[in-house]
Design a protein around this nucleic acid. Structure first.
Lengths: 189, 189
DNA sequence: TAAAAAACTTAACCTGCATTATTTTTTGTG
DNA sequence: CACAAAAAATAATGCAGGTTAAGTTTTTTA
C-alpha cells in the first residue's frame, strides 16, 4: 500500500482523511502469469496500479500479429483507456507476464473520488499528460527511426525488462518480426 | 469567443463568474499562413485553441524529414505538451497552414485557473485522455496497417482537410514519402 | 502577370524488413 | 527429470516502400 501512496504523493498531497478514503476504494487483485487482467472485447471497468510483477497491454491485428502498447512494471498505472472512458468493449488484452499483484479502482468509485477529492482530477490529469507525451514520442520514433535504433532505445528505456522478456515480445513492442530482431542481434558487435 | 465556451461546455459547466474569469485570461493571436506559433527549440509557454484556420504540429528528424503529429482545425486544442509541462525546449514546430486565429492561455494563468476553478482540471483531464486514446490508435495503425489503409483512414478522419492540404503533408502524416503516395494514388481506381 | 518556388509525377533501381520453412535451443510443467 | 511446448536461430526468397533524379504542373509572390 505504501507504493501507491508514494506514487500519488509525487503530484498531490492528501490529508489523513483523504488518504483513508482513497485506500478504502482500492481492491487488491492477483493475476497469475499468462492470465488476463482484461481481454479483447470486454469492457474495462477498472484501472490498475501494479504493486509487483509486470503486465503487458497488446492488440492483435487482423493478420494475427501482436502489437505491445505498454509494459507495466511495479509503480505503473494501466488500463484500456478507450474502453474505460467510453464504457464500450475495447480491443486491448492486458496480460501478466509473471505473477502480478495490482490494486484496482472501479470506474464508479473513481468518478466519486473525483467529486469528493478533486485533487485526484489533478493527479490523473498529470499522469495522463505524461502518458500522452510518451506515446507521442513513441509514434515519432516509429516514423523516423530504424528498427536497430528503436531496439537500442528500448534497451535504454526498460533496462530491467530486457533480460526477463522473451525477444518475441520486444519485437512486438518495437514493431518488427521476431525473425528480423534475431537477425539484427546477430549482426551487431 | 462562443466557440471556445461551447467547446468547454461539452465537458463541464461554468457559472457566469467562472466564465468571465476564464475569458479574461485568454489572449487572441493571429498567425499568418506559413508563420509559426511555435518553433523547435523554443519553450512552449502557452496552449492554443483554434478559432479559424488550421495549424499543424510536426517534427523534423535527423535526416531532414518532416513528420506531422497533429492537424488542428477550428475547435481543436494544440500545444507541444512535452515542452509545456516540462518548461524545456521542445522539438515540435507548430505552423499555420492558412491564416489562423487562436486563443492562447499562458501556463501561469492556466495553473492559477486550475486552483481558482478546479473544474478545469477535469476539463483538461478529459481532453487529454481523449488525445491519448487517439494517439494510441494512431500508433497501432502505424504498426499494423499498410500505407494504403492508413491513407484511407486519413481520408475518413479528415474529410475537410483532404482537398485543402498538399499531398506532401498527407504523406508526412501517414508516414510515407511523397513519391510513394503519388504512386499509390495513381494505382488506385 | 511573369518568374520563381513549391508541389507533383514518373520511372529505374535499391533496401529494410517480412515471409516461409526448417532446425536448434530453452523453458515450463507433469 | 523428461518431454512437450515455446522461443530462438538460420537462411532463402519476396515485396512494400524508399531513393534518386529528371521532367511537368501548380501555386506563390514580386
Amino acid at each position: 500500500m505504501q507504493l501507491i501512496l508514494k506514487n500519488i504523493a509525487r503530484h498531490i498531497s492528501l490529508t489523513a482523511d483523504e488518504e483513508a478514503y482513497f485506500l478504502s476504494i482500492l481492491h487488491p487483485k492477483k493475476i497469475k502469469r499468462k492470465h488476463f487482467f482484461l481481454q479483447e472485447g470486454e469492457i474495462n471497468r477498472q484501472t490498475a496500479f501494479v504493486l509487483s510483477g509486470t503486465l503487458r497491454a497488446y492488440t492483435i491485428d487482423e493478420n494475427g500479429f501482436e502489437h505491445i502498447l505498454q509494459f507495466a512494471p511495479p509503480d505503473w498505472w494501466i488500463a484500456d483507456m478507450y474502453s474505460f472512458i467510453a464504457e464500450k468493449p475495447g480491443n486491448l488484452n492486458i496480460e501478466a507476464i509473471e505473477d502480478t499483484e495490482v490494486l484496482t479502482i472501479q470506474k464508479k468509485d473513481l468518478e466519486q473520488l473525483y467529486i469528493t477529492v478533486p485533487k485526484f482530477e489533478r493527479f490523473f490529469r498529470i499522469i495522463t499528460e505524461k502518458s500522452l507525451v510518451a506515446m507521442r514520442q513513441r509514434l515519432i520514433d516509429n516514423l523516423s527511426l530504424t528498427a536497430k535504433k528503436r531496439y537500442q532505445k528500448f534497451c535504454q528505456q526498460y533496462p530491467s525488462l530486457i533480460n526477463s522478456l522473451p525477444q518475441k515480445q520486444i519485437a512486438a513492442y518495437i514493431g518488427v518480426t521476431p525473425e528480423f530482431l534475431s537477425k539484427m542481434l546477430k549482426e551487431k558487435n
